[in-house]
């Protein structure tokens, strides 16, 4: 498999992760496009498919964090501010998607990233740590907090509904 083919083969997974991370299909594809451009610029060595994935996720992570920082340093936002997802004919699926988009948006970015890399993208803890540039112990503590917080949100329990703006 050529290097281009190897990267192209990862696009569906990058899109899935970006979609869940941003909660918005257009933003997700913008992020994927930026990630691919950066990846092709930085492509120096042969990466086996095994190493390629965490590397691509790490590029996406850096771009995502930068874009959030530029966009006003909002770490997580109020549920009322989220866009309404248009209703589709498969109402059940659309509602489920909207519920999850909203719930994920209520997680701090660092927790959401870990939760998605491990729970959705099924990266190992070591791969998630490499993707995010943090120690594995940090991945574990974020994962633990993310899961209990998501559980509270999905159960409709009270969670902080604050808009935290870092200054």
């Amino acid at each position: 498999m050529s290097s281009r083919d190897a990267i192209v083969a990862e696009i569906p997974r990058l899109r899935r992760y970006a979609r869940a991370l941003t909660g918005n299909a257009d933003q997700a594809d913008d992020l994927v496009q930026d990630t691919l451009e950066r990846a092709l610029e930085k492509w120096r060595l042969w990466h086996s498919a095994r190493e390629l994935r965490p590397w691509l996720f790490s590029i996406m992570h850096n771009l995502f964090v930068d874009s959030r920082r530029r966009a006003g340093r909002i770490d997580y936002c109020d549920a009322d501010e989220l866009d309404e997802v248009p209703q589709r004919s498969q109402a059940g699926d659309a509602l489920e998607l909207r519920d999850l988009d909203r719930a994920l948006a209520l997680l701090p970015t660092e927790q959401r990233e870990v939760l998605l890399l491990v729970g959705l993208e099924e990266l190992s803890y070591a791969e998630a740590a490499r993707s995010l540039g943090v120690p594995q112990g940090t991945v574990m503590s974020r994962l633990s907090r993310a899961r209990s917080r998501l559980q509270s949100i999905l159960n409709g329990e009270a969670v902080p509904q604050l808009k935290v703006v870092k200054t």
Binding site: P12, R15, R16, A20, D93, E96, L97, L100, G119
Partner: peptide
């Protein structure tokens, strides 16, 4: 649940 919601993208 994450898979059910987001796997469609794949």
């Amino acid at each position: 649940r994450l898979h059910r919601a987001y796997d469609a993208v794949l």
